[in-house]
Every structure is written in C-alpha cells, then in structure tokens.
Nucleic acid binder design. Sequence first.
DNA 1: CGTTTTTGACCTGCGC
DNA 2: GCGCAGGTCAAAAACG
Length: 333
Amino acid sequence: MEKKEEQRTENSIENAALSDQMIPSNSFFMPNSIFDMPCEADQKGSLGFIDMLNVQDFTSPSIFDLLQIPPAIPLQSQSQPLPSPLPLSTVPESSEVVNTPASPNSSSMSSSSTEAGNDKQTKTVEEEEENTKKQLKPKKKNQKRQREPRFAFMTKSEIDHLDDGYRWRKYGQKAVKNSPFPRSYYRCTSTACGVKKRVERSSEDPSIVVTTYEGTHTHPCPLTPRGSFGIIPENTTFGGGGSSSGGRAGGSSFAIPQVVHYQNQQHQIQQQPYFHNLAPPFSFRNTSSLLPPPHQERPFYPSPPPLAARDHGLLEDMLPSKMLKETKGDREN
DNA sequence: CGTTTTTGACCTGCGC
DNA sequence: GCGCAGGTCAAAAACG
C-alpha cells in the first residue's frame, strides 16, 4: 500500500493539474507581456486571464502568437498561427508536449493536452456545449470521459480561489489524499462554457495554491469592466472584475502565479520560480504596494522587458529564499 | 427569489 | 472483481 500511497500522493497534484503539459520554466508567459496586452483586449472586449490562455480567438491574436510561441500552444491556438474562430477545424493536438521554446524569452506555455482535446477541438462551439451538457447528465456510460487541455498554475496566495475575470461556481470539494487541504472544483457559470478549474493547496507549501484550468472558454470574459490585466482595477485579481463565485472566498490575498511544470512522466511539480516578473500586470487583491498606479497601462513588450531587475525585490520580499535561488538558477539555465 | 456554496452520495477509472 | 481515490451530481443551506 505504501507504494500506492506514494504514487497517489504524487499524482494528487499532477493529476489534478496536469499530465498534459510541460511548461517551460523560465517563462510562464511573461506577465509583462501578456498582462499588458490587455491594452488591446481592453479595447475590444477585455480578455481575462483565462482568455489569454484559452480564448485567444475572439478578437486579438493569441497571446501565444504574440509571444511568438511556436508549436506548442495552448488549446486551439495550437498550430494556429492566426486567430481563428473558436471552432478550429482539425487541430491535430499532438497531445504530447512539444515545448520548443522559440527563444529564450518566448514563454511557451504549452498546453497540449494529452488526454482530451482531440475531439472537442474539432467540434463547434455548439457541439461543445451539447457535449458539456451531456456530460453533466447522461454521461456515466461507456466512453472514457474526455478531458480538455489543462493548465496548471501555482500561485502564492492566501486565498484559494483567485479571481481571474470569469465567474465560477463551485460544484464540489474533495479531500485529497495525503493532503490536509481539500480540492475544490469550479465550473464556469456561463452556460455555454464548460471550463472547469480545480483549486487546491499544495500540501508541501500551504501558501501555494495550485489552480488547474481545464477546457476553453467559449465566451469572452464576463467581468472585466476594462480589460483584465494591465489595468489594475482595485480589488481585482487577474483583472477580473470583481468577484467570482460569489466572491465569498474574499479576503485579503496576494498571489504570485507560477506555472507549474507538469511532466507526464516525471509526475513532478517543479518548484519553478514563481513568475520571474510578477510584478504589475498581475493584480492581486491587496497588493497595491506591488502594483503600479491603476491607471497605468503598460505596453505590450514583444520581448521581455527588464525582468531581471523586476523580479528582484518583489520576489525576494515574497518568496522563500530557497525559491529565489531556484529561480535564479533556473534563469541562468 | 435567484444564485452560489456545502456536502454526502454516486460514478468512473485504475491498480492490485 | 474489489477497493481506493478522484471527479461529479444534486439536494439543502446560505447568502445577497
């Protein structure tokens, strides 16, 4: 049983989150860039954090495109150099993570999902809707449950449920084996959107919240009065406009998102450096001290801005020195 | 009153 | 086939 236990333990988080991707460590996706992009998103409809991740098709080019991310891009954008309407035709989701950092700076947040995706990605939004609905009820029969591409983030936060601009409804909570913290399951409240997300705290570091997004939003961010990132609305995280899930999770918090490396085979969450440049773009509750003036919109940097300078100070204030070391080390690599 | 959270039960997948 | 753990459902409760 021990073995099993170990395995399970290891999987607890990875399962939750991953298995699907490999995200290059030293480059989540440059908050500076992505979160600054909202300048554009802002004008067109405002994209939320998740939008950036999954729904790059509404108006602006995918962040991944912007970031010059090669092949391995999340969700639909994968192999889609240009923005296109949701229903991508046939995205050969090569499932495997083909992370090929285009450049040292390119943040390739690959997504690729191994398990799921294939079908859905080829379906139309409507189909997806139906599919989602069906899954809610009749499912439970044959056929393996299909899973969508997933993205996992490690976030240094006091609260479990971070605002990301979308509205989520909690539909379940489960105790995780070998973890004192339960895992919460959320679903996007938008009827046509079957995106889910799981939130759990790392048993190793309670201050870290592992958020796993699964699926692709089929709608623009509902909240975000004015863009999601970049502009930092008060009391907003991830540019979300306000509250999510009823906002009951409220409370003060700060969060430092960090992409987790989920390696299928290694089953290991690498304690990657929390965002190298997590400063501004990422807005978190009560982090005003870390943020630039709310009105300050930042231009999108095609290439990483002065990150090195940035993550210093901020990071050191918030992260364990150990992590910083790792961060540095990672960066040097 | 509508929406969201809570929570126990049920379903599913997987390893043994 | 069995048991375990993850994931989801759905009724009840809580909240605004």
